[in-house]
Every structure is written in C-alpha cells, then in structure tokens.
Design a protein around this nucleic acid. Structure first.
Lengths: 259, 259
DNA sequence: CCTTCAATAGTCATCATGACTATATAGAAG
DNA sequence: CTTCTATATAGTCATGATGACTATTGAAGG
C-alpha cells in the first residue's frame, strides 16, 4: 500500500462501485431485487442494483445510500441487515473501463414495492431461482450472496430480519425453509430456537388472527443475541457420514484464491 | 453498477490497492510479515505489504503477485493459502488520495526469510501481538485477518498449510494451540483429526528424528478434505452456557454494516 | 359435532465432545 | 543398565446436541 507520490490523474483510472444483492421474502419465496438496464452494455438485461462510490463516501455508506435509493426505505430503515460480501475485481468484468465492485448483501423484512432509482429504470423483485441471466458478473455475485445468506442463517439470528416485528415460531421456521429450500422438523426447530438464549423473546399479546386453521402460535420478537452457538445447520441430503463431510466441504467452504 | 458513459478521466480517480496479511509460524509463534515504510505518510512506520492493482490485473492476481514479491516465493508456491478478506474503503484511510484497498489473508508453511520488494524497504516477521502500531488502517485489517485465520482453523483443514509437508499430529496440534493461544487436550484432538475423513493421511516412513524426549509420532500429510464437519471449535473460557453463547456471538460473528 | 391442521410437549437413540485415566515407547539422566 | 520423563496412543465416562418420532391440545371450517 505504498502510493508513491504519483500524479493522481496520470494513470488509467479505476472506477469503484458497489453492487447490492437485496433479499426479502415475499409471497413465501426468497426474492431478490433487480433492475433492468437502460444503457449499453447489457441494455435490457437485468442486473443487481448499485452505483458509483462517491469521492467522499465510504463503500459502506455508498451501499447504504444505494439501498435506500433503490428500495425507497430512506427515512426509517428499521429492520434490515447490510453486510459486505466481497470484492469483484476482474479487469474484464466491465467492457467499458476498469471497474472494481464491492458487493454487499442486504436482507429486508418488509416488502417495499420497488421503485426505480433516480433514473427511470425498471426495478422488480425476482424469486431467487427465477432470475434471468444477469449482466456483467452479477450471476456470480448473486450466487455468492445467496450462499452467504444461507450460511448466515446457520450461525446467526439473522433470520429474524426477514420476519415482521412480531412473529410466531412457525413463521420463523418458514423463513429457514424458504431460504434453504428444505423442510425442517417443527418440534426440533422449536426446541433449538427456544433453547438458544437471546434468539427470540416471548411477547405477550393477542394471539393474532390466524390465516388458516390450527392453533394460533405464540408471538415472539427478535432477541438480543447475534450468534447461534451451536449453529443451526442446514439438513444435509443424508449421505453416509464420511461422504457427507467432504461434500459439505466443497459446498460450504470458500477456500481462497489458490492453495 | 451503471457506468453511464462518463469520461473516464473526468472525475476524481480512485486508486485500488491490495494489502496482505501474511501469516506463518516461526519459532513456535504466529508471525506476520510487515514492511517498514520509507515514504510519507507514516514514514518509518510498519505496514502490511501491498501495492497497486495494475490496470490489466485482477485483484486476486495482484495479491498473488505481491505475495510473491514480498516473500520471494516466486517460482514454486507449493504450500500456501491466499484468500480475500474484505475491502476497506473509508475515504480518509489514506491522506493523499482516495484509496480503496482489497485486503487478503495469506498463510504460509515455510519460513522464507523476508526479502524486501523491488524498492529497498525493510521487511520482517513480527510475532502476532508484538507488532507495533501500523500505518493507515492496517491495525484493523490485521485484526480482521487474525480473526479470519482463527475461525478458518475451526471449520477447514487449513492448519495443514502451516505445517511442513509431513508432520505429526503433535505438530498439527501445536499449530492450533499457537494460533488460538490456547491449550488443547491431546487425546481429544487426535480423536477429532483422525475421525475426520480426508483431514490427514498417514504416510509410512521413518519415524523422523525426535528433537526431544518421548516416543516419535507417526507422520501424516494433508488430506484432500477442505472442510471440517462438524467444526473443531476453539475452547471457550468456560462460562455458564447461556453467557457463553452470547459472549461467543460478539466474539465470533461479524455482523454487517448496520442492523 | 367432528374433522383438520398447526402449536406444543414429550421420548429415544445416536453422535460429538470435554474431561480423564492408562499404557507404551523412546531418549535422557544417572 | 536402570530409572526418569515426556510424548504418543488407546481407551472410559458423562453430558449435550440432535434427528426422528409420537402424543396432546386447541382453534377454525365444514
């Protein structure tokens, strides 16, 4: 990191952008916010929302700003989560110029109807899995972001940010099932959540109108704990133990650039 | 990520650099490679090695190149690990200009004597914990990198890259103890390592000269597995269960930018 | 009233693990 | 050669977490 007194403008400039993989749960599906490009290249293709980092703005601030701009949750960003994912810096990822993009993953609880950013671009939610091929390397970013979200549900209490302020354990379980795409055993899920101090806190109140049949569940709100220990692991397509360990490895662990 | 046909040189340029937290184990200590700055700002201060990303080079390539340049392991980078850590993009992290730095963590097995890069800067290994205050925000980067290494040892087989080609289980255990700064129960450690398929493979051969007393241990080499499942968790300063869960949370989990 | 479905309360076997104890073996010390 | 000591290695035992179930309760719908 030795910037040796260069003329700032002498070399080929880099642009630095942030790209956001914004997830929410709508209509019992995990959905991701995409925008339709109105410019070349990739005109008409869908892409992750994002934009330039401003000269006096941190990348985190840029991500927050873009999130607010794209989703419209400007004023009261009460229940959401935003975290840096990783940086994508291949020299050819944008055909026009050198663009290094810092990707972020965002999780939202509410379902704000997407509104276009400043420019009149289309924006809409796509169910994860139904998304069309994206512009640039955004397929890879989205894929990495999805894996991050899945694994974050395992070892943090982040699932609660997908929930409304108050929720039942059944609703919380649905979050896990929707994101992971697997079914979970209800009694075991309850046992685990309730046994983890600070995951959820019971909140007394009217048992709330039940949509369907069945006994209405007790209401909870997110607790103060951030981590789950031990983790609440995704069920594995049960293979034999040994095989499972190795298979999981390649699925879960992102090893580095090279070994 | 909409680069709207700007004049590439019209706006304030960003510089993009890579910074490396290079770890090895020397003299039974976890050590990190630092270089002494010969330029302002922070002249005379120690810093993480790193440098500019070249115009036609990916950030990963830049990290590999810097690693080779700084450590001298150009030709045969046989046993090492390099992975992206995260990106540091505060606007004031470098007083001269806007520099966004993509940080990487590197783990090396061998003990190459540090050699200065192209320019005649000093470079040396510092035991982790004995490092002086670093230039820029490198203290934060190093701290994040150390936490990453610690947690990677938990759920991957990466500890083996700190070991020589062939090693005993005792040596492997020492890696864990040195990095984590804790003691581990030897029988339990053996049981765990040997019960994880693909962690280590026995290699027949001469029991090797023993440095000290005691029975010489059997030799192993790194196996093909990358992940540990279940993880080999750091012992926690045993508190009561509930407290421990929460305390671990704040220690282990990096939540995002904001909640 | 009775069916149905979800919430809730258990049971049981298995696995992983922390905490130990015991034995074997090689080098060092005498 | 004998003894001492440190290490490797082989267990044991109790506990905790978990997957797979079964049973009971309670509300809404027919």
């Amino acid at each position: 990191m030795s910037v040796e007194g260069y003329d700032k403008h002498a070399f080929e400039p880099f642009a630095v952008t942030v790209d956001l993989a914004v997830f929410t749960i709508r209509e019992d599906r995990l959905q991701v916010l995409l925008i339709e490009r109105g410019e070349e290249p990739y005109r008409g293709r869908w892409a992750l929302p994002g934009g330039f980092v401003l000269p006096r703005e941190s990348t985190d601030d840029a991500a927050r700003r873009e999130l607010a701009e794209e989703t419209g949750l400007d004023g009261s960003p009460d229940r959401f989560h935003l975290e840096q994912l990783r940086t994508y810096g291949d020299p050819d990822r944008d055909p026009r110029m050198r663009v290094v993009s810092v990707a972020y993953a965002a999780l939202l609880s509410d379902l704000p109807e997407p509104r276009g950013g400043g420019d009149a671009v289309h924006a809409r939610w796509f169910p994860h899995g139904d998304a069309p091929p994206l512009a640039f390397d955004h397929d890879a970013i989205l894929s990495d972001a999805y894996e991050r979200v899945c694994s974050k549900l395992e070892y943090t209490t982040l699932a609660t940010v997908f929930c409304p302020e108050r929720f039942t354990l059944g609703e919380l379980q649905q979050i896990y099932e929707i994101v992971w795409g697997t079914g979970l055993d209800r009694p075991n899920f309850r046992r685990k959540v309730l046994a983890t101090p600070g995951f959820v806190e019971p909140v007394e109140g009217p048992p709330r109108r039940t949509a369907g049949r069945g006994k209405p569940g007790a209401l909870y709100r997110a607790g103060s704990a951030a981590a789950l220990q031990p983790a609440l692991l995704r069920p594995t397509a049960s293979l034999s133990r040994g095989v499972r360990s190795i298979a999981d490895g390649s699925r879960r662990v992102t090893l580095g650039v090279q070994c």
